[in-house]
Design a protein around this nucleic acid. Structure first.
Length: 607
RNA sequence: GCGCUUGUAGCUCAAUUGGACAGAGCAUCUGACUACGGAUCAGAAGGUUCGGGGUUCGAAUCCCUGCAAGCGCGCCA
């Protein structure tokens, strides 16, 4: 419909002798229904160029449209400063509903804008040194829903979690675990949380049972370490600490994975930094960066052939990230010869562009039946990082490095979200490694359930800071908006069961005539249903899954209003009206199912 | 100090990216069907969109400026 109207407007302008500037013409659904079903500002935009008063041009445009014989168009009107409002007959909404029913939850609001394009999405990637905290929950919900939006819009999509298992933090974590195990003091800058002690005793009992019973944990850990062959973990510390670290990483990852899965968040691939290091990817990338003549050198940047993207200063090797707009150049290799965090991360991001690697993960997803594998070629088109605000200073340098390696500027994108705080009973719990006081996502999920938790994370824009009070959320659990939406779905399921029992299950059009759907509540519900495709498109374009949350609440509200005022199966309702309403009900169920699926929230048959 | 993000009803947040009278939920007050599920519906009240300038047919949205908050500004990750 939108395309038909846009074409008609542009044609009408041409007939009026106006140079139509399509990019500036807005065609939108007005907020107020008395402003029509669609509205355009075309006359306002073009009045100056046409040398006419806006309202005068609007009058002529309206007359042209009236005479154009557009389907469903009932009347036009000029309003306000020069808007042209288009009032359509309900039949256009009936057509929309017929489409919804025919396409079903699989097909409705599905786009092909991304067909043939590949997207890699990385999110959460919290250090594997403890349970998942607030940010992890938010980025998990956000990233996973964004991936679902990409898939619904036709993009080939892979999701990744980066496991940073080599750095100094991991070593400290191992040392902290070891200290708890042996009863020595935890290092000052180590991990002091309760969970470290808990996990240490888990490790101890694991070692004991492996040793066949009793034993001094500190001696056992030494034996285990010596037998474990820990060479691949170059941490530069005692073998015991390294063993503890390796065990601890897996323990933490298991915890993180469980928590995320409980929120319906999963990943195509968990990329360990250590595996990347062993593959030699770091060396290859470094060699490439040292040669400025790789195709990565952008035309826009003037360079002489003998200059490298790196240089040495103060004994360290630097990357010229300022060439691509960074504040300062960044160290790749410390003067001591050790790489910084930056270098392996560059190697990782470069690897994410690999089509082979991408396809490998896609095949794994397909094997799990999550997505189809239709094959891809060339580089991955878009690599996205979802980052917390505390990492925003990092994106300029990564964007620079990617361009140096030949990846177009627009193929790397960082989405920066504001931080989240989980609170307990109105008190902010400062996330602190030192004191170990914090609130875990697991605690949130345990307290309110996965749907409430996930919905809460997706309730607002990623740009706004978020505080979630576990106690407040628990106390208000019954009033939570997610139940309002789920209730609508359950109600519909209940109606369907009843209709089935009565032997009046709905038959989709054309067998059923939808024209009885003409009341205010029915039309409002149809209108809400109609906008879903554009909501999906906008939510993806703006990287804003919360728009789906807002929409699904709107749809539920429209349904509850309809349900309240419009009896469906009551005996006094005529069969024609009953059947049409059953169709509307089923269409609404489809819309709710799509929305809730995008949000990763359950759509229950009963509550 | 510089940079990024943000500032909207008492509270938590939306607002089709420049559109028409700024909308929801919670909290407060008042009502509703002997009911296809009341976890619902209707209504009331609540606003100088942080302040001040500017741009234009039109600004919560764009520009300038001031104020306030979060984050960042390491040869840490």
């Amino acid at each position: 419909m939108e395309a038909v109207l846009a074409g008609a407007i542009s044609a009408a302008l041409t007939r009026l002798g106006v140079d139509a500037d399509l990019s500036r013409i807005g065609l939108e659904r007005p907020a107020r229904t008395d402003h029509g079903d669609w509205s355009t500002n075309a006359a306002l935009v073009h009045a100056k160029g046409a040398g006419m008063a806006p309202r005068e041009l609007a009058q002529q445009l309206a007359a042209e449209l009236d005479g154009a014989g557009l389907p469903h168009l009932e009347r036009t009107e000029v309003a306000g400063p020069g808007f042209v409002n288009l009032h359509l007959a309900p039949s256009w909404l009936h057509e929309v509903l017929a489409g919804v029913l025919n396409q079903g939850a699989e097909g409705y609001a599905r786009h092909d804008v991304g067909a043939g394009q590949t997207v890699s999405l990385e999110f959460v990637s919290a250090n594997p040194t403890g349970p998942l905290h607030a940010g992890g929950g938010r980025w998990g919900a956000f990233g996973d829903s964004l991936a679902r939006l990409f898939r619904r819009c036709g993009y080939d999509t892979v999701t990744e979690y980066y496991v940073n298992d080599l750095g100094a933090q991991v070593l400290l974590f191992g040392q902290s675990l070891l200290a708890r195990l042996t009863g020595e003091p935890v290092p000052d800058d180590g991990y002091h949380g309760e969970y470290v002690a808990d996990w240490a005793s888990e490790l101890a009992s694991e070692l004991r049972s492996r040793a066949g019973g009793e034993g001094d944990p500190s001696l056992l850990v030494r034996d285990a370490a010596l037998n474990a062959g820990l060479a691949p973990i170059p941490l530069g510390s005692s073998v015991e600490a390294r063993l503890a670290a390796r065990w601890g990483i897996e323990r933490a990852l298991r915890d993180v994975r469980e928590t995320l899965e409980s929120m319906n968040v999963s990943f195509s691939h968990w990329q360990h930094e250590s595996e990347l290091a062993e593959s030699g990817a770091m060396d290859a990338v470094l060699a490439q960066l040292r040669t400025a003549e790789e195709p990565g050198a952008q035309d826009a940047v003037e360079r002489t052939p003998d200059i490298s993207w790196t240089y040495t200063d103060d004994g360290a090797e630097w990357l010229r990230t300022t060439e691509f707009g960074d504040d300062k150049d960044r160290v790749l290799i410390r003067s001591g010869g050790e790489p910084t965090y930056f270098l392996p991360d560059i190697a990782y991001h470069d690897a994410k562009f690999s089509a082979e690697r991408f396809r490998r993960f896609r095949r794994q997803d397909s094997a799990r039946g999550e997505v189809d594998d239709d094959g891809t070629s060339g580089e991955v088109d878009l690599v996205i990082d979802v980052l917390g605000a505390d990492h925003h200073g990092y994106v300029a340098r990564m964007a620079a490095a990617m361009q140096m390696l030949g990846h177009p500027a627009e193929s790397y994108e960082a989405i920066v979200g504001q931080n989240v705080t989980l609170m307990r009973d109105g008190k902010v719990i400062k996330l602190s490694k030192r004191t170990g006081t914090m609130v875990e996502v697991r605690e949130l999920v345990d307290a309110v359930g996965p749907d409430v938790a996930r919905f809460a994370f997706l309730l607002q824009s990623i740009d706004s800071r978020q505080t979630i009070d576990i106690d407040l959320l628990s106390a208000q659990a019954a009033e939570n908006p997610v139940f309002y939406v789920q209730y609508a779905h359950a109600r519909i399921a209940s109606v369907a069961r009843r209709a089935e029992a009565d032997g009046v299950a709905p038959v989709p059009p054309p067998s059923t005539d939808l024209s009885p759907l003409a009341g205010d509540r029915e039309l409002a519900l149809l209108r809400a249903l109609e906008v879903l495709p554009s909501v999906v498109e906008i939510a993806l374009r703006e990287r804003a899954p919360h728009k789906v949350t807002t929409w699904v609440r709107d749809l539920a509200a429209a349904f509850h209003g309809f349900y309240h005022d419009c009896p469906i199966l009551h005996s006094e309702v005529s069969p024609e009206v009953r059947d049409a309403r059953l169709c509307l009900t089923e269409g609404t169920r489809i819309g709710l199912a799509i929305g809730l699926d995008l949000l990763g929230v359950d759509a229950p048959e009963a509550m």
